[in-house]
């Protein structure tokens, strides 16, 4: 068996008559960070939602060699993949700790207790705020909680949708360094980002998505140097 953790082949997703994702194929090798960059409305979020099973899709999705295309979201979580959605989707009226514990809903009680200690070590801020309601956290803390909650399920693949959205540069730097640490800890990552510069700096491999299709792919460092990418996504203000 290859070391491909997630493999998506010829994926089509439609909202009514609008084709949002059109024949997309991407691979996430085990132990790597793969990023999909592209403008607003390119279909990146739709791609992640289909991979997670939130949206029905046509094509093939294999995770660790098993076809999961027709599995419901809950099964996909159980089999080792989690998604941190763009809108975080926290349990706003529950305390931080309950949010985390529920993240470990499908793992055993002992694993859950073990895992929450790890999350608290990785995000000390969450431990300080464990009794606070999730809805009262700041934007950066919410993103941390969303990631922490996803990690509670002990995923082998973590999918992140715009983790830097609405966050100040210093916090973005924090979040990205945590993503890097997660890879060293053996979690593979599929990252969707509008902040192309930061994403390309972080990732091993990258795809560019435009109007529902993959238009370029390659080593992240190569793409970061590609003049077309620099012009379209990195902007002239690169510093």
């Amino acid at each position: 068996m290859s070391d491909l953790l997630l493999s998506i082949r010829d994926l089509h997703v439609a909202y009514g008559k609008v084709q949002a994702v059109n024949g997309v194929s991407i691979d996430v090798p085990r132990g790597e960070i793969v990023t999909v960059i592209g403008a607003n409305g390119a279909g990146k979020t739709t791609l992640l939602n289909a991979a997670m099973g939130i949206l029905p899709a046509r094509g093939a999705i294999t995770f660790e060699g098993a076809n999961i295309l027709r599995r419901p979201v809950e099964d996909r979580v159980g089999s080792g993949m989690t998604l941190v959605p763009e809108r975080r989707e926290l349990f706003a009226t529950m305390p931080v700790e309950d949010n985390l514990m529920l993240g470990g809903f499908l793992v055993s009680a002992s694993e859950r207790n073990e895992q929450i200690e790890q999350v608290y070590t990785r995000f000390p801020r969450l431990k300080e705020r464990r009794r606070q309601l999730a809805g009262t956290l700041s934007g950066g803390e919410r993103q941390m909680l969303a990631m922490g909650r996803a990690l509670m399920a002990k995923p082998r693949l973590l999918m992140l949708d715009e983790p830097s959205l609405g966050l100040a540069p210093l916090i973005v730097a924090d979040i990205f360094s945590i993503i890097r640490d997660l890879r060293s800890a053996g979690v593979s990552i599929l990252l969707v980002e509008q902040n192309a510069r930061a994403a390309l700096r972080l990732a091993d491999h990258a795809y560019v998505m435009e109007l529902g299709e993959i238009t370029m792919s390659g080593k992240a460092s190569d793409l970061a140097a590609d003049p077309k990418i620099v012009e379209t996504y990195l902007g002239i203000a690169a510093h």
Partner: peptide, 11 residues
């Protein structure tokens, strides 16, 4: 509280 959030943790 959050239906999608619940599905994403496996409920």
């Amino acid at each position: 509280i959050n239906r999608l959030g619940a599905r994403l943790v496996g409920i």
